[in-house]
Amino acid sequence: MSLEVKDVSFAYPNGYVANENLHFTIEKGERVAIVGQNGAGKTTAVKLLNGLHKPTKGDVLVDGINTKDKTVAQISQYVGYVFQNPDDQIFNNTVKAELEYSFKHSKLTDEEINRRVERAAELTGIQQYMDMKPFDIPYSIRKFVTIAVFVALDTPYLILDEPTAGQDINGINRLAELMDILQGEGRSVITITHDMEFVADNFSRVIAMANKRIIADDSARNIFWNNDIVAESNISKPQIGELAEDIGSDNKILFRHELLEYLTRL
């Protein structure tokens, strides 16, 4: 069971090519960060994963199902996609109704639905907002509401688009904890992000994109310490990595404790 992208290219109906020859597989329970400059093709790439875009060449298989054979709504049972702007996805009168909406046609018992909704609220830290109108709660919390929708749905794959934008440290920590729990359950999380500290702290696998293509698919450490890839995809090393490079360390240091160890040995 996996998400397979097989030699996929995508062009918009007007002929503009947005992705070329993407090829990768995401296994159950894997955590992948997709990084790169705006316009590199990251968003187009993840839209291929949930069927919003259908490949013009190649195939995308979700647990063996070709996205070309299903509607986006059908694929959404497998691949959850949390958009960058929560306001595009929220429309119910209360946060609770928002979470329950996805189960409208579900065959699950009310008890089970309740259990899932409550758990999702707990994991995303939005319990205290459940009876409020979504637009009366802060923007950064609304983002967690859309995440909770898919946590409750229990999709095996979850795509997060810029989850850390506008989040404070509490929000970022909560995201990290949530991803740990989902991974523990064998669910995969795919994240588009510009936040390199977040990538280094939370993702073992990183896909770097530039110019519509994947230019590297490797561990965070190898990607951040490859200056060619960093330059081509227009990302940056996390601060500690930059400092380690400044002082001439070649141990591919990314984290504070590693640099501390290096410095105290000096």
Binding site: I169, N170, Q239, I240, L243, R256, L259, L260, L263, T264
Partner: peptide, 19 residues
């Protein structure tokens, strides 16, 4: 709930290590 720069945390670590 205030984020502290990694570099400041490193400086603090060094202090705690006695260096």
């Amino acid at each position: 709930g205030v984020n502290i720069p990694q570099i400041a945390l490193l400086s603090n670590d060094m202090k705690e290590q006695g260096k």
